[in-house]
């Protein structure tokens, strides 16, 4: 009876899109702060002294791949293949963990160097922008765990599929924000 669940038409998905827009505005504020404060190092280290592009590239790769595997999971859910969906969600989760782990070790490395968020306005803005994204990723990971439970415990009804679809939207959204962070924070930070 639920052959074609058109999640895109669901009213909750529409509302979730609006929510994502509001979240994007929060990120926009953080980006604006970062750009304004980028040179306010107050004698502390600047971006290109601190960032190591190799680890950032791995992070990016992990997140981009996870976005792809997340789509695969959604595809499998549409096909009603619970096992495959779980598998792809597990892969997404693992990649997300890789991302978080690298980010966390980068942060602790900076802290070891004395480049903590109390050092300068630039570092405050950096930790806040990247950290807020990391926090969103953590929420996304929690949601993925719940989605895996949902796939196993609940029927793939419109209600549940719609919930999972919103997770996928959320994950893609975080991917998009990361691309901006990569460009604005690391890309130009490395060049300038």
């Amino acid at each position: 009876m639920e052959e074609n669940i058109k999640v895109e038409d669901d009213i909750k998905v529409f509302g979730f899109w609006i929510y994502l827009m509001t979240d994007l505005i929060i990120f926009a504020v953080l980006f604006a702060c970062f750009i304004v404060l980028r040179n306010s190092t107050f004698g502390g280290p600047s971006g290109h002294e601190l960032f190591r592009m190799s680890s950032v590239l791995i992070e990016t790769l992990a997140l981009l791949t996870s976005s792809f595997t997340c789509s695969l999971a959604m595809f499998e859910i549409q096909q009603k293949r619970k096992n495959m969906a779980t598998f792809w969600f597990a892969v997404t989760f693992a990649l997300g963990m890789v991302f978080l782990f690298i980010e966390f070790s980068e942060f602790s490395e900076l802290m070891d160097k004395g480049a903590n968020w109390q050092r300068s306005a630039f570092l405050s803005a950096f930790f806040t922008l990247v950290g807020t994204h990391g926090l969103h990723i953590s929420v996304g990971l929690l949601w993925i765990i719940i989605a895996i439970f949902r796939v196993w415990l609940r029927p793939l009804s419109a209600f549940n599929v719609c919930n999972i679809f919103r997770l996928v939207l959320f994950w893609h959204f975080l991917d998009l924000v990361w691309i901006f962070i990569f460009t604005v924070v690391y890309g130009t930070g490395h060049l300038l």
Binding site: V29, C33, L37, F42, W117, A121, S124, A125, T128
Partner: peptide, 20 residues
Amino acid sequence: LLWLDRFFGMHFFTTGFGGN
């Protein structure tokens, strides 16, 4: 952000350390 300044000692809007 104001709360981060107050709780974690960040410097978004402080007078010193490059805050704006």
